[in-house]
């Protein structure tokens, strides 16, 4: 189980959190103007890197706030939250 450093509450066990997937995926401002390819890219296509990964977490059983984190997906170590 990961030990996750919530920026608001400090280090807490992973079961208090909900993983929110890749970070910095902005919802397109006007989806109706988007091509199907771009819309598919927004909805489904992910970087899924082996190495550094910018991701979002929700401290759902704690302060219920979202935050960003950088984690290495090989060692599972958090670099920063």
């Amino acid at each position: 189980m990961l030990l996750i450093h919530c920026p608001y509450c400090g280090p807490r066990p992973e079961i208090e959190f909900r993983g929110g997937g890749e970070a910095h995926i902005a919802r397109p401002a006007d989806p109706s103007q988007l091509s199907d390819d771009r819309w598919a890219s927004f909805l489904f296509f992910r970087n899924n890197p082996k190495g550094r990964h910018a991701e979002r977490w929700l401290h759902i059983h704690g302060c219920q706030r979202w935050f960003n984190a950088v984690r290495d997906t090989v060692s599972d170590r958090f670099e920063k939250t």
Binding site: L2, E14, I15, R18, G19, K50, T73, V74, S75, D76
Partner: peptide
């Protein structure tokens, strides 16, 4: 597990 990983290990819970 709920997070992406290439570690070939998972949480004990």
């Amino acid at each position: 597990d709920q997070y992406i990983s290439y570690s070939q290990t998972g949480g004990l819970h």
